[in-house]
């Protein structure tokens, strides 16, 4: 990852960038111009423009604009309650399931605004997989957990082979290959989370959203998941929420820092964020002075 592309503002997002300028503080302005550089690898796959979310009358996200590059790991960090999970749920429209949540703005996946009238959230979620904070395997067999998405999405194929591939990719195959038909709930927490990852990648989505996938796990399981994420990024675009700065620094290519009030304060290459952030507040947060 180099810094040499900072002037390369060739993306069409330049327009939205200036739109943000008008109503945001100077602080954020710099942030966005930094964030909207063309990514070092891959095209932009997810592009948020002025995304706002309200829960009833409480604003949880304020004018979030950021562009997530393809085949990269993008980390979202920030203090508790700053809207990280809310933003993640905007991407696959899981917020639709929350009765009093309201989303406003545009969020494009591969150029198409997922909040357009004609977008079916079910179809969207088939392209954007999700792994949750707490492992949540179904009370079904390991095999049936992995094939669940395939069945729901009507994907045909050699299920045995797909299951094996997904479990191998999730680094779980060796541990479960001889007990595929036992309940997924009989696995350890770390194994369950890897099962959930296998389940999410089996239908072969484009994007994988992970909401603190390692927060319920011990250090060994955590490092397994981290290794895994690095590998997943070769095939998928990974957006991961984490509370763990070191983890973000280790595994991500880009980092978005949200701060209290649901604002995106800085979005840049991970190295830049951790070594030389533009904002004092970001530096304070990263070095643990607050948050």
């Amino acid at each position: 990852m180099t810094d040499g592309h900072s002037e390369a503002e060739t993306e069409p997002n330049a327009t939205t960038d200036s739109a943000t300028m008008t109503d945001d503080s100077e602080d954020e302005l710099k942030t966005h111009s930094a964030g909207f550089e063309s990514p070092p690898t891959g095209e932009t796959i997810i592009e948020a423009e002025d995304v706002n979310v309200w829960y009833d009358d409480d604003r949880a996200l304020e004018d979030i604009s950021m562009a997530v590059p393809e085949h990269n790991v993008t980390a979202i960090i920030g203090p508790s309650g700053c809207g990280k999970s809310t933003f993640l749920r905007c991407i696959n429209r899981m917020n639709d399931l929350i009765d009093d949540a309201r989303v406003d703005g545009t969020l494009k996946l591969a150029g198409k605004n997922v909040y357009d009238e004609d977008v079916d959230p079910v179809a969207l979620r088939r392209r954007v997989g999700m792994v949750f904070q707490k492992p949540n395997p179904f009370p079904k067999s390991i095999y049936d957990n992995v094939t669940y998405g395939l069945e729901m999405q009507g994907i045909d194929g050699d299920y045995d082979a797909i299951v094996e591939d997904a479990l191998r990719e999730a680094a779980l195959w060796d541990e479960v290959s001889d007990r595929l038909h036992e309940s997924g709930l009989e696995l350890s927490g770390g194994q369950q989370q890897r099962l959930c990852i296998a389940r999410a990648i089996a239908p072969d989505p484009e994007v994988l959203l992970m909401d603190e996938p390692a927060s319920a796990l011990d250090p060994v399981a955590t490092s397994q998941i981290e290794d895994l994420i690095a590998e997943l990024a070769e095939e998928y675009t990974v957006v991961i929420v984490t509370h763990n700065m070191q983890q973000a620094a280790r595994i991500s290519d880009k980092t978005a820092v949200f701060l209290t009030g649901g604002k995106l304060v800085e979005f840049d290459d991970t190295q830049k964020i951790f070594e030389n952030p533009e904002h004092q507040r970001v530096e304070d947060y990263i070095t643990g002075k607050f948050g």
């Binding site: 696959n92 899981m94 399931l97 079910v122 179809a123 088939r126 949750f132 949540n136 179904f138 239908p203």
Partner: peptide
């Protein structure tokens, strides 16, 4: 609810 979310997250109706 986490099980429902898992289902929806996998593209279930």
């Amino acid at each position: 609810d986490s099980l429902r979310q898992a289902g929806y997250g996998l593209g279930a109706t």
